[in-house]
Design a binder for these strands. Sequence first.
DNA 1: CGCCGGTTTGACATACTTCAAGAGAAGTGG
DNA 2: CCACTTCTCTTGAAGTATGTCAAACCGGCG
Lengths: 245, 245
Amino acid sequence: MRFTAKIRPKCSECPIRHRAVCARCDDGELAMLEGIKAYRSFAAGDPILRRGDPLTYVASVVHGVATLNKTMEDGRTQMVGMLFPSDFIGRPGRGEIDFDVVAVTDVTLCCFQRKPFERLIATTPHIAQRLLEMSLDELDAARDWMVLLGRKTAREKIATFVHMLVRRQSVVGSLGDGAPLILPLTRDEIASYIGLTLETVSRQLNAMKKEGILRFTDRRRFEIADLTALHIATGDDEEGAPAYC
Amino acid sequence: MRFTAKIRPKCSECPIRHRAVCARCDDGELAMLEGIKAYRSFAAGDPILRRGDPLTYVASVVHGVATLNKTMEDGRTQMVGMLFPSDFIGRPGRGEIDFDVVAVTDVTLCCFQRKPFERLIATTPHIAQRLLEMSLDELDAARDWMVLLGRKTAREKIATFVHMLVRRQSVVGSLGDGAPLILPLTRDEIASYIGLTLETVSRQLNAMKKEGILRFTDRRRFEIADLTALHIATGDDEEGAPAYC
DNA sequence: CGCCGGTTTGACATACTTCAAGAGAAGTGG
DNA sequence: CCACTTCTCTTGAAGTATGTCAAACCGGCG
């Protein structure tokens, strides 16, 4: 169940201070943000925003992982984004979003009321610029994902997905060196992200285990036994440094 | 072959004046833009920008249609965007792009040198805001496309593609009422856009012809004989007004 | 006229889905 | 602490939508 804690930690001690929308803000601007921000927490599985809901606030992910999901009339679903700490939720200039946002782990958000935030964007270019930059990064990532969805084989999809997890989880620094990686998603959710069924995901994951590319300690925890082989399996070229990172 | 015409038509008479990046600019800002802009033309089939090329300019599409293409090492390709008049090419803040931009019809661009344009963005919020808005729209469209690539059947993909063409071509006003729609792409290019093979595209298109949904006057020209049926065939819900428009 | 790119059409192959059953974990309550 | 349920995951067998390969067609253009 959702609970709202009216907590406002100091921005200066924020773990995502240098990566989020506020990355470029100076002290004065941070002070303005601190005035309109409020933390909110969600338990794993909770909906954060529902499609069509009036969008009263925008937010940065501070802790945890959230997903963006689209559902067709007949129930088919496609995940269209995965949000890690420092990622931004919401779109200034529009009153609603047309996908669901769900917390897949426990999540903490740093929320800003949309209206005052929009005013800030109009007046402080540092925020607007950073938001533009983040949006363009997301667009790049979305385009890489389109290649995955449209052209990659099941095996390449899985490999790419795992590879992205490695990059993102290590960038965020949520794990020590050599510590096992965590699958924040169920097989079903992974399937939804990469456009497959959960059975195919399960089979491919086990195949990569048998081949010695992945080593599972648990259904949700694993290590990369052979990063080179994993990278080759993605089908991406040499140093193409995909945008989802 | 590419030819560069050093022509600078007045912004005030520009057909995309109210939809492009410059939509919100006042007269003074337009004057600044006019100072750094230059038209360029490309013939159908010409490359506009190549992956990895240094990005010396950014641009708005004035006439014609261009596509964004990604290619994997082994030659598989996926189209990741289609640019119509008023759409923007290029990304401020980055020196290169990681896809190819190709003119699929004759194309006219309104180009701005990247560096001066970036300076303008930093100083004139009207441009930055409009660019942010356009990027977010593109992101929405990309997400709708991810649903198409990941979850739709061949038939739904074709229907969705045609439906998008109807919307975009009529918005741009490049055709009168009842005039036949134009397929700017070959079967192969369509296939690349929706993640299929050209054979499947051909079969589905002909199936919709036989069913009386589409009426071809030519291999590249056709009319929508039954818009309702077309819409139903997309698999999208009632009034979900997809973002690609 | 004869080539040539784009397109259609057919026959066949297959990667992935679908359907179905069962095995592990993980929690719940007695 | 042990049934019992529930959820996730695995594994198998069978079906199918779409891809692959190949040949023929068609309209345009030199």
